[in-house]
Deep mutational scan, measured.
Amino acid sequence: EPLWIRPDAPSRCTWQLGRPASESPHHHTAPAKSPKILPDILKKIGDTPMVRINKIGKKFGLKCELLAKCEFFNAGGSVKDRISLRMIEDAERDGTLKPGDTIIEPTSGNTGIGLALAAAVRGYRCIIVMPEKMSSEKVDVLRALGAEIVRTPTNARFDSPESHVGVAWRLKNEIPNSHILDQYRNASNPLAHYDTTADEILQQCDGKLDMLVASVGTGGTITGIARKLKEKCPGCRIIGVDPEGSILAEPEELNQTEQTTYEVEGIGYDFIPTVLDRTVVDKWFKSNDEEAFTFARMLIAQEGLLCGGSAGSTVAVAVKAAQELQEGQRCVVILPDSVRNYMTKFLSDRWMLQKGFLKEEDLTEKKPWWWHLRVQELGLSAPLTVLPTITCGHTIEILREKGFDQAPVVDEAGVILGMVTLGNMLSSLLAGKVQPSDQVGKVIYKQFKQIRLTDTLGRLSHILEMDHFALVVHEQIQYHSTGKSSQRQMVFGVVTAIDLLNFVAAQERDQK
């Protein structure tokens, strides 16, 4: 057995438009009618409502009807409940999964919650491996369901041993009777949507819809739904939504950006999952974080739909894509998950301010006199920076000697690579993860907040409520011999709460 199987392995699926269902090699399930009293909570997966979006479509000038398939009504709160249950049931049916076995899954959280929910009911041990950027709410729900959680670096490539995929496979090879159901490759993922989600949409719309818009992560949702719609409703256009920084969209030119990270969760990847059939997507749109969270908040405030950030991405694209539809036509959007997962993220004004998705003037509360002053007023001194090749031991000596707790790590040209902190280095040394002679590049981390000289002290204040420091950066445009230009970030300084307090105190003292 291989040590790991690539999540982007070539698909062996034989589905073709027009091929009889009787030739399918898979076990198919028909939607079942729910009894009045459910035998367990797993029976509350599927049969989610279709809700008309009344205000947002009109606000953006849509002539067509805009409908939302509300997947956050599933038992675990997301569309991923469907595939989690289906993968477990299919693994039980073919004898792969037996009582007492362990389920391991690399996930952005929602599939993990679905699997942990099913594992709690069915009696399996469950280990979820997820990147650090995923919300604390997801972690809390997983723990409450009895799952064990392993976190991995957000910026690790999918084929790196440190990625959530790599760590999951390492655990599988170490733990007896453990299984990775593997949402990236498992046919049960798109089949769950082909058999149930798509049929529900067709039934709820009486077979009449002209466009379907869905955000894409593993691709199982859009693949399964689109294949069924292509068979039953061939005139329906399928629109895929991919965040900026991901590479799922086609044509490839759409993916060209210097951005590699994004805040919206559960969609987009740096590889093409095996289950994603991009041939059934008629057109791709890219979405960005700001519009995703703005539209998610709009869905909550104006439509009462308590959905997550990827739902915002989907609707932001839908109001663009559906401009081509006329009166009497219908566009369906998939709202994948609930706001429950993001209470401390985009639902929080403070978080939105820190990330730059909300401006101070958007909030009406009274601010102190210094709130709208610029960061450049602080008069920061030149920063202490270190090269990635310097040793951890030497870096600790320098920081202690100069009285700093942290320093930016830059390359020879001064471009920011990340940050090192005294606390992080000492804990890594004590844990045996690094040696004093190791290069400081081994303990770089990139989960820090950046701020510009033109940003306000109010925004800085919000950042420092949650973080010990902020890195002050400025952009530099560099022209190359080819005539092309590129933008790079340079370090201007490091600012802490002490710097802000000293500035405010000094100004008030001078005024007296």
Results as ranks from 00 to 15, higher is better:
residue 240 G to K: 08
residue 240 G to E: 08
residue 240 G to R: 02
residue 240 G to Q: 00
residue 240 G to S: 03
residue 241 V to Q: 08
residue 241 V to L: 04
residue 242 D to T: 05
residue 242 D to W: 00
residue 243 P to A: 04
residue 244 E to L: 04
residue 245 G to W: 04
residue 246 S to N: 05
residue 247 I to N: 07
residue 248 L to N: 00
residue 248 L to F: 02
residue 248 L to S: 00
residue 248 L to H: 00
residue 248 L to A: 04
residue 249 A to L: 05
residue 250 E to K: 09
residue 251 P to S: 09
residue 253 E to G: 10
residue 255 N to Y: 05
residue 256 Q to Y: 10
residue 257 T to Q: 04
residue 257 T to W: 11
residue 257 T to D: 10
residue 257 T to F: 09
residue 258 E to P: 13
residue 258 E to L: 11
residue 259 Q to F: 13
residue 259 Q to Y: 04
residue 260 T to N: 06
residue 261 T to Q: 11
residue 261 T to V: 05
residue 261 T to F: 11
residue 262 Y to G: 03
residue 262 Y to S: 01
residue 262 Y to I: 01
residue 263 E to D: 13
residue 265 E to I: 00
residue 265 E to T: 02
residue 265 E to A: 01
residue 266 G to N: 02
residue 266 G to Y: 02
residue 268 G to K: 00
residue 268 G to E: 00
residue 269 Y to G: 02
residue 269 Y to M: 01
residue 270 D to E: 08
residue 270 D to V: 02
residue 271 F to D: 00
residue 272 I to G: 05
residue 272 I to T: 08
residue 272 I to K: 07
residue 272 I to C: 08
residue 273 P to W: 00
residue 274 T to H: 02
residue 274 T to C: 02
residue 274 T to L: 05
residue 275 V to L: 04
residue 275 V to F: 02
residue 276 L to R: 03
residue 277 D to E: 07
residue 279 T to C: 15
residue 279 T to E: 13
residue 280 V to L: 14
residue 280 V to Q: 10
residue 280 V to W: 10
residue 281 V to A: 05
residue 282 D to Y: 11
residue 282 D to G: 12
residue 283 K to G: 05
residue 283 K to H: 05
residue 284 W to P: 00
residue 284 W to F: 02
residue 285 F to K: 05
residue 285 F to T: 06
residue 285 F to L: 12
residue 286 K to C: 00
residue 287 S to P: 05
residue 288 N to T: 06
residue 288 N to E: 13
residue 289 D to T: 01
residue 290 E to V: 14
residue 290 E to Q: 13
residue 290 E to P: 14
residue 290 E to A: 06
residue 291 E to L: 11
residue 293 F to W: 02
residue 293 F to K: 01
residue 293 F to M: 03
residue 294 T to A: 14
residue 294 T to C: 07
residue 296 A to D: 03
residue 296 A to T: 07
residue 297 R to P: 01
residue 298 M to A: 11
residue 298 M to G: 10
residue 298 M to E: 11
residue 298 M to S: 03
residue 299 L to A: 04
residue 300 I to M: 08
residue 301 A to E: 12
residue 302 Q to D: 15
residue 303 E to G: 03
residue 304 G to R: 00
residue 304 G to F: 00
residue 305 L to D: 00
residue 306 L to G: 00
residue 306 L to I: 02
residue 307 C to V: 04
residue 308 G to D: 01
residue 309 G to T: 00
residue 310 S to K: 03
residue 311 A to C: 08
residue 311 A to T: 13
residue 312 G to L: 01
residue 313 S to G: 08
residue 314 T to D: 06
residue 314 T to F: 07
residue 318 A to R: 02
residue 318 A to Q: 02
residue 319 V to Q: 08
residue 319 V to M: 15
residue 319 V to Y: 09
residue 319 V to P: 04
residue 320 K to D: 05
residue 320 K to A: 07
residue 321 A to P: 10
residue 321 A to Y: 07
residue 322 A to D: 03
residue 322 A to H: 01
residue 323 Q to S: 07
residue 323 Q to W: 14
residue 325 L to I: 07
residue 326 Q to F: 09
residue 326 Q to C: 11
residue 327 E to L: 09
residue 328 G to N: 12
residue 328 G to E: 05
residue 329 Q to A: 15
residue 331 C to G: 07
residue 332 V to R: 00
residue 332 V to P: 00
residue 333 V to A: 14
residue 334 I to Q: 00
residue 334 I to D: 00
residue 335 L to F: 10
residue 337 D to N: 02
residue 338 S to N: 11
residue 339 V to Y: 06
residue 340 R to M: 05
residue 342 Y to V: 02
residue 342 Y to E: 04
residue 343 M to C: 03
residue 343 M to T: 06
residue 343 M to D: 03
residue 345 K to Y: 00
residue 346 F to V: 03
residue 346 F to R: 04
residue 347 L to R: 01
residue 347 L to T: 02
residue 348 S to I: 05
residue 348 S to G: 03
residue 349 D to N: 14
residue 349 D to Q: 08
residue 350 R to W: 10
residue 350 R to L: 12
residue 350 R to T: 11
residue 351 W to D: 01
residue 352 M to P: 00
residue 352 M to R: 04
residue 353 L to T: 15
residue 354 Q to G: 05
residue 355 K to T: 03
residue 355 K to N: 11
residue 356 G to Y: 04
residue 357 F to A: 02
residue 359 K to A: 08
residue 359 K to E: 14
residue 360 E to V: 13
residue 360 E to F: 12
residue 363 L to R: 11
residue 364 T to V: 05
residue 364 T to S: 15
residue 364 T to G: 11
residue 365 E to L: 10
residue 365 E to G: 14
residue 366 K to H: 11
residue 366 K to Q: 12
residue 368 P to D: 10
residue 369 W to I: 08
residue 370 W to G: 03
residue 370 W to V: 09
residue 371 W to A: 09
residue 373 L to C: 09
residue 374 R to T: 13
residue 375 V to C: 10
residue 376 Q to P: 09
residue 378 L to C: 02
residue 379 G to F: 12
residue 379 G to A: 14
residue 380 L to S: 12
residue 381 S to K: 12
residue 382 A to K: 11
residue 383 P to M: 08
residue 383 P to Y: 08
residue 384 L to M: 12
residue 385 T to D: 06
residue 387 L to C: 10
residue 389 T to E: 11
residue 389 T to H: 13
residue 389 T to Q: 04
residue 391 T to Q: 03
residue 391 T to P: 14
residue 391 T to E: 09
residue 392 C to F: 15
residue 393 G to K: 13
residue 393 G to I: 14
residue 396 I to R: 04
residue 396 I to F: 09
residue 396 I to C: 11
residue 401 E to W: 06
residue 401 E to F: 13
residue 401 E to N: 13
residue 402 K to S: 13
residue 402 K to P: 13
residue 403 G to P: 09
residue 405 D to F: 11
residue 405 D to M: 04
residue 406 Q to T: 13
residue 407 A to P: 11
residue 407 A to G: 15
residue 408 P to T: 03
residue 408 P to W: 14
residue 408 P to Q: 13
residue 409 V to I: 14
residue 410 V to K: 09
residue 410 V to N: 14
residue 411 D to I: 12
residue 411 D to S: 13
residue 412 E to R: 07
residue 414 G to A: 04
residue 417 L to D: 11
residue 418 G to V: 01
residue 421 T to Q: 15
residue 422 L to V: 14
residue 422 L to M: 12
residue 422 L to G: 08
residue 422 L to W: 09
residue 423 G to K: 09
residue 423 G to W: 14
residue 424 N to K: 12
residue 424 N to H: 13
residue 424 N to L: 13
residue 425 M to L: 14
residue 426 L to S: 14
residue 427 S to P: 09
residue 428 S to N: 10
residue 429 L to C: 11
residue 429 L to E: 04
residue 431 A to E: 11
residue 432 G to V: 14
residue 432 G to D: 12
residue 436 P to C: 14
residue 437 S to T: 05
residue 438 D to H: 09
residue 438 D to E: 15
residue 441 G to E: 11
residue 441 G to D: 14
residue 441 G to Q: 12
residue 442 K to A: 14
residue 442 K to M: 15
residue 442 K to Q: 15
residue 445 Y to Q: 06
residue 446 K to P: 09
residue 447 Q to G: 06
residue 447 Q to A: 14
residue 447 Q to P: 13
residue 448 F to R: 07
residue 449 K to H: 03
residue 449 K to Q: 11
residue 451 I to T: 06
residue 451 I to V: 14
residue 452 R to C: 14
residue 452 R to F: 12
residue 452 R to Q: 03
residue 453 L to A: 09
residue 453 L to Y: 06
residue 454 T to Q: 11
residue 455 D to W: 10
residue 455 D to C: 14
residue 456 T to R: 12
residue 457 L to S: 02
residue 457 L to Y: 14
residue 458 G to F: 11
residue 458 G to E: 09
residue 458 G to A: 13
residue 459 R to Y: 10
residue 459 R to A: 12
residue 459 R to P: 12
residue 459 R to K: 14
residue 459 R to Q: 14
residue 460 L to S: 08
residue 460 L to Y: 08
residue 460 L to A: 06
residue 461 S to P: 14
residue 462 H to P: 07
residue 463 I to D: 09
residue 463 I to F: 15
residue 464 L to R: 04
residue 464 L to H: 03
residue 464 L to S: 08
residue 466 M to D: 12
residue 468 H to R: 13
residue 469 F to W: 12
residue 470 A to E: 04
residue 471 L to W: 13
residue 471 L to R: 03
residue 472 V to I: 03
residue 472 V to F: 10
residue 472 V to P: 06
residue 474 H to W: 04
residue 474 H to P: 11
residue 477 I to M: 14
residue 477 I to G: 04
residue 478 Q to R: 15
residue 478 Q to Y: 12
residue 478 Q to K: 10
residue 480 H to Q: 14
residue 480 H to D: 12
residue 480 H to A: 15
residue 480 H to P: 10
residue 482 T to M: 12
residue 482 T to C: 11
residue 485 S to R: 12
residue 485 S to C: 14
residue 487 Q to L: 12
residue 492 F to W: 15
residue 493 G to V: 13
residue 493 G to M: 04
residue 493 G to Q: 05
residue 495 V to D: 09
residue 496 T to N: 12
residue 498 I to T: 12
residue 498 I to P: 12
residue 498 I to S: 12
residue 498 I to M: 14
residue 499 D to K: 06
residue 499 D to R: 04
residue 500 L to K: 01
residue 500 L to H: 11
residue 500 L to G: 08
residue 501 L to Q: 02
residue 502 N to A: 13
residue 502 N to P: 12
residue 502 N to R: 13
residue 502 N to E: 13
residue 503 F to C: 03
residue 503 F to M: 13
residue 504 V to L: 07
residue 504 V to R: 10
residue 505 A to P: 05
residue 506 A to M: 10
residue 508 E to A: 10
residue 508 E to H: 11
residue 509 R to V: 14
residue 509 R to W: 11
residue 511 Q to M: 13
residue 511 Q to H: 13
residue 511 Q to N: 13
residue 512 K to A: 13
